[in-house]
Design a protein around this nucleic acid. Sequence first.
RNA 1: GUCCCCAUCGUCUAGCCCGGUUAGGACACUACCCUUUCACGGUAAGAACCGGGGUUCGAAUCCCCGUGGGGACGCCA
Length: 462
Amino acid sequence: MSSVRVRFAPSPTGFFHIGSARTALFNWLYARHTGGTFILRIEDTDKERNDEQFLNVIYNSLIWLGLNWDEGPNVGGSFGPYRQSERADVYSDYLEKLRLAGRTYEKDGAIWFKLLGDRYEVFDDHRKKTVTKVKVAPTVIEDQIRGRVERVEDEDFVIFRSDGNPVFHFVNVVDDIAMKITHVIRGEDHLSNSSKHVELFKAFEAPVPQFAHIPLILKQNGPGKMSKRDQGALIEEYQKRGYLPESLVNFLSLLGWNPGDDREKMPIAEIIRLFDLTGVNQSNARFDDKKLAHMNMAYLLELAPEKFVAIARDYFKSHAASPTTTLALAAHDQYFHDVMTLAQPKIKGLEELPIYTAYFFSDDFAIDPKVREKVMSKGDPKARLGELFEALSRLDFASDQIIEDGIKALAAEKELGFGDYQSVARLALSGTNVGPSITGMMRVLEKEKVRTRFERFLGTVG
RNA sequence: GUCCCCAUCGUCUAGCCCGGUUAGGACACUACCCUUUCACGGUAAGAACCGGGGUUCGAAUCCCCGUGGGGACGCCA
């Protein structure tokens, strides 16, 4: 095990979104790549805004994505506790160090961190008030991704609120010291906080960890970074929509990082092997749900049929409220299996499944009027369906191939093409022109059902 | 307003560090092929170096300025 220790430090103040997931992923990847330790630390110092339910959202999302933590809540570790709300003792110890070093003072009931240098007053246009500044040399941040960044940190800042609770800057640095964090990998929105943090590290006389500020994910439409409220921002949502976590992870890994060549779809082991901070970009990336959907389809396509069926069943179960999924779940296992394997190579995502397969589980399906119009307008489809109905008794439904041969024989006999039968049969059987092969459809539906649907359709067209 | 970061097809990006490419790939879009509908797949096409100055024989690549985008400026994290 290497000495690399990284942490993902979310605060449970809202749902878990894409940006957080990507930060977690990059930390996890770096830990796995280097053989280091991935730590989950919950930054819940703001009691007002924290909520237990969000904690479970974080845990569940990380687990779903496969980002297991080596130290943290529920798994323990020798640097715990890993929830900041349980680390009050640690913080008072560290506050004492700062106090002894003469780097704190009290004002308005809060405890402030004192910068070193001469003070002067200046009016701040933005905040519309006079503030006290300190004459300081710029703070240098050596960043693995940005290079050397200088920032002037010239105002004292609060480290303990008047309610007695420590603030983010303080606990973040203290815990990074206490937990021996070696690399701080976080979003670029923290870059301007880093000067505060570096000054704190220096005040504690602690080694400054390596910083790596990764680019932000921008919302796909409109200005600004992606936030919890944006469309497609929540991890939970992808879970609900039946996205495969490995496809989301693969997609996310490519947002701001690349292996240096054209490879995109890669197994996680390969991503871990290739991942490094030097491959991380400096510019923000816009989220593209189409590319994610494509990635997901590619993963779905290569799933072993048994696995696909199991995942499909889970998806139906978690959407059991709808009538279509209820009927599907009520079907025999083998039948469900057969329908799903028919659909697997055809669909782009699990979300399509209930509607795509609905007519397999219910005779009560609508005929698409547009498709009907199109199919019925050329040739004599009614006659074709009649012929096919006639031939049904002679057709063996044992395999797609036998059905295909049977229809082809019929077509040859009538000096017609396969398509002349296919389109109208599909319409009668499914009410649409979208779906799996007609032969597979007939095989799975079985002869009796095919017969009754043909009959019914023939009846409706008079 | 101040400070910080960034800048290649519509989007994600390779190339930049170490100047010489028909500036490559993927998603999306278009056409065609495959075909039993719809997809998948295949082929092809269109599509970019933000602008201006330098440096240089030569700049996407190095430097400066501008512009644009993003972030931060809380007793939030």
